[in-house]
Design a protein around this nucleic acid. Structure first.
Lengths: 92, 92
DNA sequence: ACTATATGCAAGTAACCACTTGCCTATCAA
DNA sequence: TTGATAGGCAAGTGGTTACTTGCATATAGT
């Protein structure tokens, strides 16, 4: 699973946005955030599958404690893009 | 067509590599480079479609002179990724 | 033990994507 | 004009993806 494929979905990009803003959310927390703040009426299983794709790409790492699974944004794989091509303009 | 979708294909990524290395190549030149240097036995039409995807994403700009069409790598859309999330590690 | 909570697994479906094949248009040289 | 070169358009196909539905597992509270 490549980073590029993982990023090729708006729902997954929004999930990354939310994890970057507040790290360590559970699946249910992400579900409610997507529903309330983004109007995305997806089922829990759909979002779980998206998280699996992000995890397989290394963009999300997880930690399981008790019956909950906490998700953390890992930006490192994004550096692959910057390494492969020059980025247009300047980064902030 | 998003930048992310355009990047989600190894053939298109190789095309970007080649254009970044030598700008202004024609479709036929790109075909022969992919075949000889990368062992990609795709038809001309397939590669033409890939170039269309890259152009729709803004990653490639073209210029038509005579019966030839010249392709140029445009890195600017890649900056969108750097703007949206922090890149892991440091960029070179 | 029983119930609710938090998540996982698997099959089915509709839409999408990469690639091919076949034909067509346009430019240049003789 | 004839022929060769450079590229475009469109339909069809096989494989993949996003999403749903249904059921199962594991943990926590009472």
């Amino acid at each position: 699973m490549t980073v590029y494929r993982a990023l090729d979905d708006e729902t997954r990009r929004v999930v990354l946005d939310e994890l970057a803003a507040r790290d360590g959310q559970t699946l249910f927390e992400i579900c409610s955030v997507l529903a309330t703040r983004h109007g995305l009426g997806l089922t829990r299983q759909a979002i779980s599958q998206h998280l699996g794709v992000l995890e397989a790409a290394g963009l999300v790492v997880t930690e399981k404690r008790g019956r909950s699974k906490y998700h953390y944004f890992n930006p490192e794989p994004l550096a692959e893009i910057a390494r492969r091509w020059p980025l247009g303009e300047k980064e902030q």
